[in-house]
Simulated assay, not measured.
Amino acid sequence: MTAQSGLLSRLPDISGLEKIWTILPEARLVGGSVRDLLRGLAVNDLDIATPEPPEVVLERLKSAAIRAIPTGLSHGTITALINHIPHEITTLRRDEETDGRHAVVVWTKSWQEDAARRDFTINAMSLDRHDKLHDYFHGVQDLKARRVRFVGHAARRIEEDALRALRFFRFDARYGEGEPDCEACEAIADNLKLFGKLSAERVASEFLRILTGPRLPETLAAMEKTGLLNVLIPGAQRGSLQKLLDCAGPPDALLRLFALSGENAVLMGAKLKLSNADKTALGVFGNTFPDLAPSSSDDDLRRGRVAQSLELLISRSWLAQARILARPDRQWDHLRIRLKKLPQPVFPLGGKDAQAFGVPPGPAMGAWLRVAREWWLEHGCRPDREACLVHMGCSTRS
């Protein structure tokens, strides 16, 4: 199916595309670029497909003095840099062999074969240099109906790559409406065993994007019905997450993962192979010290700023608010404002100060500094260096 579209006029700058079309006249915009143009959304990445094999694409780009980077040559992908803007060009492909994680591809000249290997109908459209839209699987119709469907048989698409189960829910949250596609949900439920073959990094990338996306409660409820949510997070606590959402807090993936995982949050961080910083944060989220409440004094908050980073304290304040109130609240908002306005306290003494008092390096010096620091903390981190020295002088003489 082809139709005049008028979509190219929605791009702020097509000079790069026009340059590519002079050397690759059969090339087309594909996938998300076309989908987002149809939705009237900003297009940040230009994905292009062409029937020419990658070595021909490379040669033509070099002949036209366009910088070419073989970013994914084994999959037929080359990035052309034009005016510092990347244009990703991929040779048309069809899947020759799949194992639920990876596909062995071969080049093809058929646009329909290439479209048939894509995941969803709304991602399988293409737009040529004449501004003609090519839609082989009714993607326009599905996009207008806010319906996300797999291209062809849903079960086969998932068998080719089980990560598409998570991608389905992510795309349905953004582009769908109402109940998700029944065929897709049945296929996901029937193929849960394939999910275990996926790398933790790929799963984390998709799932964390779901957690920051729209319609999260509905999406997680649908995932739970298929059994996929329980495979990912056994005993997921959707009620706890809903309390956090009811506070109208930030769309923070790590916060939401903690609320959903509860006491298993640290294990989930390890399972998803998150960064060390993220795993540490998940552990801190479960702490109750330092205590955070709207009634906290400035001294309490300064001590909190010493114990934990501002970012962690703000995150923990949202979790505390969700646990206590589960609704928006001006007093909790004011607490976060106070936390942000307080300068970061820095303990003013060091080893040289201890030496000046005749304290030798080693355990004695460490003990001297600990005593000074405890007094400084007890007084809300307000005493300056001189006050601390005066106190330690008195303490030493006494």
Rank of each mutant, 00 (worst) to 15 (best):
L41Y: 15
H391C: 02
P70T: 11
A253N: 12
P361Q: 00
G6E: 06
L267M: 14
L216Y: 06
F258D: 12
E311Q: 12
I82N: 03
T91N: 09
A326V: 07
S9D: 12
L349G: 06
P345C: 08
T226N: 03
E96T: 13
D45K: 09
A270V: 05
E177C: 12
V57K: 08
L325A: 13
L339C: 02
L127R: 10
G176V: 09
L92K: 04
I158R: 02
Q344N: 03
G16Y: 01
L58D: 05
A248I: 01
R323G: 05
A80E: 00
V390D: 14
F168I: 06
L389V: 11
R330L: 14
L24G: 01
L216K: 05
V43D: 02
S9V: 15
A372T: 06
I23M: 10
R67E: 13
S261Y: 10
G269V: 05
S309R: 13
R35T: 05
V104L: 12
C381Q: 03
V105I: 09
M1N: 06
E113T: 10
L11G: 04
Q331F: 12
M365T: 02
V266R: 11
A322C: 04
A265W: 02
S395H: 08
S33G: 14
R10W: 07
Q141G: 09
D45H: 14
L38G: 01
G269Y: 07
L339K: 08
D299E: 11
Q344M: 14
M125V: 02
T98H: 15
V390K: 11
T108V: 05
L312Q: 11
N123P: 12
V57R: 04
G269M: 07
L228R: 07
F258R: 10
D161E: 12
H334C: 04
C381Y: 00
L216M: 07
D142F: 08
I233N: 03
R323F: 13
S240Q: 10
G269Q: 06
G262R: 06
N230L: 01
I337G: 00
L301I: 04
R336C: 00
N83I: 02
R118M: 08
L272Q: 02
I210S: 00
F137Q: 07
L133T: 05
A277T: 14
L325C: 15
L267P: 00
L73I: 15
V346L: 08
G196D: 08
R174G: 10
F258Y: 15
F289T: 13
M268R: 11
S317K: 10
W376V: 04
L143K: 03
A154Y: 06
R118L: 09
V148H: 04
A277S: 14
R382P: 03
G178K: 03
G40V: 13
G32Q: 04
L208Q: 07
A49H: 07
D142Y: 09
A253H: 12
S126N: 02
N191W: 00
C247T: 15
T22H: 10
L46K: 06
P361A: 04
L11D: 03
V266W: 00
M125N: 01
D161I: 10
G351R: 01
L166I: 02
D45L: 05
L24T: 01
T212W: 05
A103C: 05
I89R: 05
K197S: 05
E378S: 14
V43S: 03
V390F: 03
V359F: 08
S296E: 04
S295I: 11
H87R: 03
V266N: 03
G227L: 02
P12E: 06
K193L: 08
A222Q: 01
A367Y: 13
L24E: 02
V371R: 11
